[in-house]
Every structure is written in structure tokens, then in C-alpha cells.
Simulated assay, not measured.
Amino acid sequence: MIKAELKAAEYRVRALHALALAEDATLDRVRELQRHSAATWTQMAEAEEARARDTRRAGPSQGD
């Protein structure tokens, strides 16, 4: 597994955690912030996954 894939997996876990916090939040503003956080972590995970795909396509000389 390359570094980008590890980061993507970590970001996915963080997104799930933020979603769980949003579900438990009693204040609307806190719920909104946690959902925004989850969306940001998800976007970061998607970017890392794309980076990992690009690295694999480029070959071993370009890998991290």
C-alpha cells in the first residue's frame, strides 16, 4: 500500500467519525460543522485516492 492510500484510509475514518459526531450533536450549528468536517475529510480522501491511482499508472519510478 502506498502512502496516498494510507492517508485516504485515515481520512475516510475521520470522515466517519465526524459523521457520528454530527448525528450525536444536539446543537444545529455543531451538527452543521461536523457535517462540513466530514465532507472535507471525504474530499481529501478522494484526492488521495486519485493521487494513488495516478502514481500506480505512472509506474514504480514515480511512486512514493
Rank of each mutant, 00 (worst) to 15 (best):
A15G: 14
L21W: 02
T42K: 13
A8S: 09
R12M: 06
A47R: 08
A45G: 02
P60Y: 09
A15F: 10
A39V: 03
R31D: 00
D54G: 14
D64N: 12
V13P: 05
H17L: 05
I2V: 09
A25R: 01
A20C: 05
R56P: 03
R57N: 12
E49H: 12
E10Y: 02
L16Y: 11
A39G: 15
L16D: 14
E49I: 06
S61D: 09
A52E: 00
D64K: 10
R53F: 01
L19F: 04
R35C: 10
L33Y: 14
K7T: 06
E48I: 00
A50P: 05
L27E: 13
Q34R: 12
L27G: 08
V30N: 09
L19A: 01
T42C: 06
V30T: 13
G63L: 06
A4V: 00
V30W: 09
A47T: 04
A25L: 04
L16P: 00
Y11C: 04
K3M: 01
R12K: 13
T55K: 15
R56G: 05
V13I: 08
K3Y: 03
A45E: 02
A18H: 03
E46L: 12
K3V: 02
E48D: 03
D54A: 15
Y11L: 06
T55M: 15
R51L: 11
A18L: 01
R51M: 07
R14K: 15
T40D: 10
G59C: 08
R29L: 10
A4Y: 00
A18Q: 01
T40F: 11
T40C: 08
A52D: 00
K3E: 06
I2D: 13
Q34H: 15
A47M: 02
T26H: 15
T40L: 11
M44K: 14
R56K: 12
R51G: 03
W41N: 06
E32L: 09
L6T: 07
D54C: 07
E49G: 06
